[in-house]
């Protein structure tokens, strides 16, 4: 059997799964941001014709799934697994959307790291020969997350500049064996890191060390340098966490300044509501699916390292004074099929 592991945390795909198509649905605020023109669908009302926000979140995920099937000309029968997750208790947004999706289903929780967690697992299922084709998705919704993690949305509170806004978005992709690219070539699975930050209004600082740990591990495991990638993208560190991550990487001897960005920074124009930037499972999912995927297809970028980052706290844990553990998973997406041993 070909060795598909390198180093401590990384898998290198042998039969690299190919990205077939992506689809995104986002909320109004995201649809007014700098990436507005890239999304497939923008919903104007957070309820999106439903009676609750939770139903609306399931609906944007479901519609994104339907959209990606339509774009790729596949039917549910041709999808062997679906991997999806969200931020709600018992990941109900995904589970309830999956009621309408007749595909064997894995529900994932990795907080906002869910998208790359799903890509890594989906990639392994495809490369391992357990599936010809898989769906990977993630969603989040500003109002559902806000009421679960923080305050009622109509409460008049002032957010600190380190706070982030949960993105209303769903992003889904189809991965398959033997397509024409871009390809999922490697995945570095992060470990849970807790550096003692306990302020839920400052998740960027809590997650930055986890992102840095995974990125450094990826370079060490693969023997690659930052130059290998055209762009390194973290999930939702937002402006505060991004600055910290950049400096932490420099301390580790990796200067990524000229090729590093963050989905949470890209998705919004900064204002009083968004503060440091976006967060949520849908953040890296929607930004990758809508913005980076086409850039790879068009050849503007040939190699991307996407590192979705998750803060693994709950309202119960922070009320009990616990610090915030965080996790990050990295996936390498490349336009060229890797040569060599494979």
């Amino acid at each position: 059997m070909a060795e598909k592991r390198v180093g401590r945390n990384t898998v290198i795909f042998a039969e690299c799964p190919s990205f077939v198509a992506t689809a995104t649905t986002v909320g109004k605020k995201e649809g007014e941001g700098p990436l507005a023109k890239y999304f497939d669908q923008v919903i104007q009302d957070p309820l999106y014709g439903e009676s609750t926000w939770e139903k609306a979140e399931s609906k944007i995920l479901l519609e994104s799934v339907q959209k990606v099937l339509q774009k790729s000309n596949y039917t549910f029968d041709q999808i062997h697994f679906m991997f999806s997750g969200d931020l709600l208790n018992q990941i109900t947004a995904s589970n309830f959307a999956a009621r309408e999706i007749p595909v064997p289903f894995y529900g994932l929780f990795g907080a906002c790291s869910t998208f790359t967690e799903g890509l890594a697992l989906g990639g392994m299922a495809v490369d391992g020969g357990f599936a010809q084709r898989v769906l990977v998705g993630a969603s989040s919704h500003y109002q559902t997350a806000e009421r679960q993690y923080r305050y009622p949305t109509e409460l008049g509170v002032q957010k600190p500049p380190t706070a982030q806004r949960t993105v209303t978005a769903a992003g889904v992709v189809i991965l398959e064996r033997g397509g024409s690219g871009p390809f999922l070539t490697a995945a570095t699975i992060g470990r849970v890191i807790d550096m003692g930050i306990n302020d839920p209004m400052d998740m960027g600082s809590a997650m930055a060390p986890a992102a840095v740990h995974t990125i450094v591990q990826h370079f060490q495991d693969t023997g690659r340098n930052p130059d290998y990638y055209d762009v390194i993208v973290t999930g939702d560190l937002a402006s505060v966490g991004k600055n910290l991550a950049e400096d932490l990487l420099k301390k580790e001897g990796y200067d990524v300044t000229d090729r590093y960005t963050d989905c949470g920074v890209l998705i919004y124009k900064p204002d009083v509501d968004t503060q440091a930037g976006g967060s949520g499972c849908g953040c890296s999912a929607a930004v990758f699916c809508s913005y980076f995927f086409p850039l790879l297809r068009e050849g503007k970028y040939r190699r991307i390292l996407l590192v979705s980052t998750g803060a693994l706290m709950s309202p119960t844990t922070y009320q009990q004074g616990e610090t915030i553990p965080a996790i990050a998973h990295a996936v390498a997406v490349e336009m060229d099929y890797p040569k060599g041993e494979g």
Partner: peptide, 12 residues
């Protein structure tokens, strides 16, 4: 880390 991160974060 906490001291370093807190010192660098934007103040209200």
């Amino acid at each position: 880390y906490k001291r370093w991160a807190n010192a660098r974060k934007p103040k209200p």
